[in-house]
Computed example of a mutant assay.
Amino acid sequence: MTWCAPEKQHWVLQPLIDAGLATEQIRAFLYQLAFDEIIGEGRATVAAVHAVVADQPARVQAAWTETVCRLLALPGPDA
């Protein structure tokens, strides 16, 4: 079971989809973000979040920023 409805999941990922990224690339970015957070000390910094896509074109970086903003806008699982 997920705490986020499928339509919200799609809304969160839409900027990356619109930027032309394949599902596997989106998955890789999200895994990297999660992995970095798990092994990091405390909350990820803005620089660390951006580092996930630092080697990508500007359109992908912009889409990633929007995706992260949308992730942060979601209510928590207990909300």
Rank of each mutant, 00 (worst) to 15 (best):
C69G: 12
A62T: 09
A44S: 12
C69A: 15
L74C: 00
R43G: 06
R27L: 07
P77W: 11
V46M: 09
A22P: 01
L33P: 02
I26K: 08
Q56H: 00
W11Y: 15
I17D: 06
T45F: 01
D36P: 02
Q9E: 15
C4K: 11
L33I: 05
C69Q: 14
A62P: 01
G40Y: 02
G42C: 10
A62W: 06
D78T: 14
V49W: 05
T2Q: 12
H50W: 06
Q61E: 15
T45R: 12
T65H: 03
R27Q: 14
D78H: 12
A48Y: 05
G40S: 15
Q56R: 12
H50F: 11
T65E: 02
V53Q: 04
G76F: 04
Q25T: 15
T23V: 13
E7P: 07
V60I: 14
P15N: 10
K8P: 00
H10Y: 11
D78R: 13
R59C: 05
G42I: 12
A51K: 04
L72V: 06
A63R: 07
V46Y: 03
V68K: 07
Q14G: 00
Q9N: 11
D55G: 15
E66H: 01
E66C: 01
T65C: 02
T45N: 08
M1H: 09
V68D: 01
C4I: 15
L72C: 09
T23F: 11
C4A: 10
A79C: 05
A34R: 07
V53Y: 00
I38T: 12
Q56N: 05
V52Q: 09
L13K: 03
D36N: 13
I38W: 08
L30C: 08
V60Y: 00
W64M: 02
Q32D: 00
Q56P: 04
P75A: 13
C69Y: 00
E37T: 08
Y31C: 04
P57S: 01
E7R: 00
V52P: 07
L21A: 00
R27C: 07
A73M: 11
D36A: 05
A19E: 00
G40E: 10
A48C: 01
A19V: 08
H10F: 09
P6A: 14
A5H: 14
A47S: 13
I39V: 06
L30K: 02
Q25V: 15
W3G: 15
Y31T: 03
G42N: 13
A44D: 01
H10M: 11
Q56Y: 05
K8I: 03
L16T: 10
A5L: 14
L72I: 07
L16R: 02
A48E: 13
A73Q: 12
V60Q: 01
V68L: 04
Q25R: 15
V52S: 10
E37F: 11
V68S: 02
L72F: 03
A34V: 01
E24D: 14
A73W: 01
D36R: 11
L21H: 02
A5R: 13
L30D: 00
L71A: 10
R43W: 01
V68A: 05
A54Q: 13
H10R: 14
C4Y: 08
D18W: 02
V53G: 05
A47N: 07
T45A: 13
I17V: 09
F35L: 13
I39F: 04
D55R: 11
V46H: 11
V49N: 08
P75Y: 13
